[in-house]
Design a protein around this nucleic acid. Structure first.
Lengths: 350, 350
DNA sequence: GTTAGCACTCAAAGCCATCGAGTGCTAACC
DNA sequence: GGTTAGCACTCGATGGCTTTGAGTGCTAAC
């Protein structure tokens, strides 16, 4: 348990270090605080805080910087929740959600761009996860004799399309028949259950209506793959190169692995899903708290947005452990609210 | 006009420098060449090549490196066209196009990934440019009372979908009627002419069939926007972070602008379209030959792929001016052939 | 409990000598 | 005339050295 004074000092160290990226000395604290304590006293307290594991020293004759534990304590107990976002932050987000939107995915993308622009961190927005939604309808639009576009519409209003080619034994009419069956049987089924449902129920049905069973199954497989969704395309990244702006990543050796990692959306997706991030409204993972070793010098802050109480997607910011936690959390919160509202409105519109 | 010997030396300097990233000295050339000339002679020749502008010296006591002009001469006259790609290169590309593909865009994306993986450069693939193709069909699939999905299928087999919402005065039936008219009037019209065609001919027609003219026009505008296409999504990037691996970009100050630039697909698109790149089968832009100042330390090599003789899209590699030009060109050539074949096959299948 | 004072530590910055790869030039050689 | 050995010269890179200064820990006095 920290004393009131220790908390104040810890907070000052974190705040100062986040701003200046330089180890904070006792004199600095002594001057800037209203405690009216001398540097020597601060030194004693800082030594204690180091013993407790909240601060560390890069080397003997340097000031202190927050340890991972220090940041953790800061986030858990010292966040100034009353600190307001700047005018600029608020208006940028307002503008983002203020426009009338026809394309929901575009907004997700824009959210990532805006957030990374405001923070200089890297931002990730997971579009509504298709497996959290159910099937609204399935359509097939013939292209030629041997191919068609399959259209999937989910309850959250996302549309996905994909070209399928018919195996030799399957005609366009067979395909249409197949889609009709699927529509009847699968409407309202949660996306993540579709594959198993198809395997259990539909196969039988299909064999009754279509002659060339083998080929029909092959087509069916193509369609189900569309339904399974292509999560990768639902990950929107913004400002990956912002990593380069962070002083801790000034040297190429250090950034390269992180940036390469960011290049693969499916990996980023994995990191955002990590642990129970998905369950909690707000999740902060600091440095080594991330399973991924590449992120051991980074922090990942995520919030979920929802519709009708169900979590629908995640937005997150990835930056150095030396992060403006208070601001980031508030920004994400605002953005999540915006997305939640947007999806609610969108749902009504359909 | 260079002498045979000068050409040989220039070639050796380029080859050596591309490999080692270190200024090439006269002794190195003297030893590795079969000319049997002493270092002193080479020195004289190199001094001449410097006077002619093909080589330059980082400082007095260093070896020579190729100038932009040197690379240009190398590309124009000294490319060893007989040099074969390695087994690895060839099989990687074969495998890429060997599989049966259902989704053409996925192949474009994969092409970018493979090319960047093989070369350690950044790769860009422009999917078939929608404005180079014509409209095959337009479909509307109703979602609810106030919205629908508009599906565009082009002659190259690409499919694009987008949700549109109906303005208040327009019913689902009106929308369907509208689409039917568009289909009749626009089939076979090149994509890039669609907007003007709509303005000229369709407007009149629409006013006859649909009551609420104003609102119908608003809907029409939404649809035409889909038709205009979203080129941005047709730009596939691979290995942007490969830039970080290049020794000339070892320092963050230098890479940051380039990497940030690569983050915006529409800008990259612009660069690939630059000048007459689009007209020529093969285009090499070295350093300052690029209009974009950010690319003054980079080279951009592009080739077009086509279907039925018409250029359909572009693939390119972006790397440091110190680039393995011969290999890059051959790789791109192979990849372009692959894409050309694939689209030809795809077209037949439809 | 707080603080002034002081000796101590250590990274960063600046300085200088050394090293060596590579050059240009000259004079000799074929 | 082209080629080459030889040599003085240049200049970045490397590494050791000192200096500087921010910051600490400890002690003794308040």
């Amino acid at each position: 348990m920290l004393t009131e004074r220790q908390m104040l000092i810890l907070r000052m160290v974190v705040d100062d270090y986040v701003r200046s990226v330089e180890p904070v000395g006792s004199r600095t604290i002594s001057k800037h605080s209203e405690l009216g304590l001398s540097a020597a006293t601060i030194r004693n307290e800082m030594a204690d805080l180091e013993d407790l594991g909240f601060l560390e020293q890069p080397h003997t004759s340097a000031g202190r910087i927050p340890s991972q534990l220090g940041y953790r304590y800061y986030v858990d107990h010292l966040l100034a929740t009353d600190v307001q976002l700047t005018e600029r932050d608020v208006t940028a987000i307002k503008r983002l959600f203020g426009e009338r939107v026809s394309e929901v995915e575009r907004v997700a993308q824009q959210t990532a761009v805006i957030l990374s622009g405001l923070t200089q961190y890297t931002s990730v927005v997971l579009g509504p996860q298709i497996y959290e939604t159910s099937l609204r309808s399935l359509q097939i639009v013939p292209l030629g004799d041997h191919s068609a576009v399959v259209l999937v519409v989910t309850s959250a209003g996302q549309v996905q399309n994909r070209t399928v080619t018919f195996p030799d034994g399957v005609s366009a009419r067979d395909a249409e028949r197949l889609v009709r069956i699927l529509n009847e049987k699968l409407q309202g089924v949660p996306m993540y259950r579709i594959r198993s449902r198809v395997m259990e129920e539909i196969m039988r049905e299909v064999s009754r209506h279509i002659e060339d069973y083998e080929d029909a199954v092959r087509l069916l497989d193509q369609i189900v793959t569309v339904l399974d969704g292509d999560n990768q395309e639902k990950v929107f990244l913004g400002g990956a190169t912002n990593m380069l702006l962070q002083p801790e990543f000034r040297d190429v050796q250090k950034v390269t692995p992180v940036l390469s990692w960011l290049e693969h959306k499916e990996r980023v997706l994995g990191a955002l899903r990590e642990g129970d991030a998905w369950q909690q409204k707000l999740n902060v993972r600091i440095g080594g708290e991330n399973d991924n070793e590449l992120l051991h010098d980074c922090s990942v802050v995520t919030v979920t947005y929802q519709v009708g109480g169900n979590p629908l997607g995640v937005i997150g910011l990835i930056g150095p452990t030396r992060m403006e936690y208070a601001r980031v959390i508030q920004l994400l919160d605002h953005a999540a609210r915006g997305l939640t509202e947007m999806y609610a409105k969108h749902e009504k519109n359909l």
